[in-house]
Computed example of a mutant assay.
Amino acid sequence: MRLYLLALNPTDAVTEGFLPAAARLGLDVTVLTDQPDAHRRIYPETEVLECDVRDFRAVITRISTHHRPDAVFTNSDHLQTQAALAAAYFDLPGKDWRATLRCKDKAEMRRRLSAAGVDTVWSAELTEPAALDAPYPCVVKPREGVASEDVVLVDGPEDLMTRSKEILERRPGSVLVVEEYLPGELFTLETLGDGNVRHVLGGFHTELSPPPYFIEERLTFVPAHPEPVVEQVLAQLDALGVGFGACHTEFVVHEGRARIIEVNYRAIGDQCDLLLARLLRIPLFEHILRTHLGEPLPADLGARRDGAARLEYPCADRAGTLVDAPRSTDLDVDGVRLTYRPLRSVGERHELYMTNRDYLGVLRATGPDQRTVDRVVAEFLAERQWEIQP
């Protein structure tokens, strides 16, 4: 069976998750990407074809002139609609392209949730800097952005004018969304569905950097959110038409009310997916691929709920060259399994981005209870250093 996997830059999810899972399923994989050399360097044994994957017409043409497809899949935020349209063209299982578009376009997501009567958030779109009469503080962000890139809290019209001008200079031709700030604790909900059955895999409690930025610095696994919270989030996902394959939803809870911040219609990223598969002890990546092959999910995934987990992302606090940092490490300490992977090489120079691009590495930890996991993680981080010189 032939799987076409759409990708932009190489990611850990594809390299360590989906490609090994496809091999275990016995699938022939063809990667379609606009960055073929980068992918061939990482997995030279996999067929990689150059394609303008942002254009669904180019994707359909590339597939139709190659081998017959059995599945078209992507884990990229930017390519969900293209993959959904290509799958529909070839009469293959896939996500509803309208749902993928609603999730990717943050302004359309707000309109859809409001029209469905499940949540209304004040929002507006900007194509040029402007000082709006808005319910400040507000959040300004790219309409189709990801990973906290150019997401910032503004406290008044002048601040909005300044920030929107800066972002649009970095992103000419982009559209910005300005929306009211939603107070509350930030969480995620991880779901997996086949169009009929939907499993809730749990979620994470996310700790952010101080305002005005929204860098995810720490995530702690939550085996089960309160049922009323889950029901509210699922109702909003239903309004968006989300229910097939993996979905990563970010939401806040304030005084018992759950309100979606954004929906990433794919598996959770930044190595959380790798941790989730280990923690729950399920073939998560295989399950995701099977749904795109048209196979139903089991009524019970057999996921374990008795473990604890945490992820830490050491971040750069200044611009400069990384001159000292821990190497890739795997350890078992007091029943806690630690996996550290560097995300920036020693010798690299970077500016300070105030986004997830400031991550220096990621530490994944799973263990029997949260107190032990937290202690072991704190000790690991305290014993290591990341040195940046101007």
Rank of each mutant, 00 (worst) to 15 (best):
V253C: 12
F380P: 04
A365S: 01
S209E: 15
V29L: 01
R57I: 01
D270F: 07
K104N: 13
A277H: 06
H199P: 03
P390Q: 12
G202F: 13
D159A: 15
L19W: 04
R357I: 02
G302M: 10
L168S: 11
R384N: 05
A134E: 14
P342T: 02
A13C: 11
V376P: 11
A308G: 10
L6V: 01
G94I: 04
V72G: 11
A325Q: 05
V252S: 01
T191E: 03
T127P: 00
L311A: 13
E227F: 01
D133K: 05
P129M: 11
P44Y: 10
D300P: 00
I268M: 10
A88E: 14
H199C: 02
G17E: 08
L219F: 06
A224M: 08
L311V: 13
A239Y: 02
R57D: 00
V346W: 03
V323Y: 00
A365M: 06
R259M: 07
E387Y: 02
R357N: 11
P137A: 07
E348Y: 07
R40L: 15
E227L: 11
Q232S: 09
K141N: 10
F244P: 08
D70I: 02
S114M: 04
F285I: 09
V139K: 12
M354F: 15
R327F: 00
E250P: 01
H225A: 15
A382K: 12
S76E: 15
T191Y: 00
F251I: 04
C315D: 02
H248K: 09
S328Y: 11
E108W: 08
T81W: 01
Q389Y: 03
H67Q: 14
M109K: 04
A21R: 09
R266I: 05
V377C: 13
P93L: 07
A246C: 10
P183V: 06
R102N: 07
E158Q: 13
T355K: 04
K106V: 07
T321W: 02
G347R: 03
L182K: 07
P368Q: 10
D37G: 12
E286H: 09
G94K: 04
